[in-house]
Amino acid sequence: MSRRELALDRTDDALVAAVGRWRHVFAGASVVTALFLLLPIVVILPIPFSEGEFLSWPPKGFSFRWYDRILTDPVWTGAFWMSVRIALFAAALATLAGASAALAMRRLPAGRASWLRTLFVAPVVLPYVVYALGLYNVFDALRVIGATWPIVVGQSVLAFPIVFVAVSAALASVGGGLTRAASSLGARWPVIVWRVELPMVRPNIAAAFIFAFAFCFDEVVVALFLAGPAAPTFPLQIFTSARESASPDIAAASGLVITVALVSFALSGALLRHASRKNKGLHA
């Protein structure tokens, strides 16, 4: 492994040498792109610390009143916990289905697997509005609009590809060698899944769950169609408030959503780093 890593380093050096002075241009372009992507988020962060009554830039003064308000107002806290609950269940459902699908895919002939794989990542390119409208029609016919579980089901389908792709990639790095080794040692597939494959990709599954949670937490389209007016999700509450007023509590709520996303990102990153350290250098 160390030899392979060395070879990789050398390739990088060669690449840097070949790019030459252009690398400064590339670096500049990367910084501009990153700013373009992050600036809208960075701009919104200081607004809720304003003392003023309205959304404005630059913020005036400094106070915690808006954060205080969304953390105590039952409308906001209710929406927050509603979103947490829905996202937890939806992410759990997506993780169960996504990880199972990724594990099953290893046991199918290559042709059939590639068909199914296309089908399984399809929700990513699905027009969310059309999908949500379809769900609405179905659940409306079942007279369950306003209940929480239809949102859970709808969001878990959208989060499914996230888990499926992440776990598939992790399993690909496990390689077929370990599976063959286990079966030559007398293990049937349930034992191989339980004692070889799952333990090796457990951190990746946990990271995928967190990603799925973050995705579901700020999902709007499905929630918009399926949530009852009495119990909106957190992003829906932001949406509704933004239409009705220009109060900085919207910005405070956005800050909270960003915090959830950042914490999820950091957590899953730490998990994956830990995993790659643990499994380093043995399986090819």
Partner: peptide, 30 residues
């Protein structure tokens, strides 16, 4: 007859040791 019922020992080129187990657990697996 599937691989897991043949009772054949196989040593792989890259050894295919289970990286999440100790040496002893690897031998204990079968």
């Amino acid at each position: 007859v599937p691989a897991h019922s043949r009772n054949i020992g196989f040593v792989f080129q890259n050894y295919a040791l289970f990286p999440h187990m100790t040496a002893g657990d690897n031998v204990d697996f079968p």
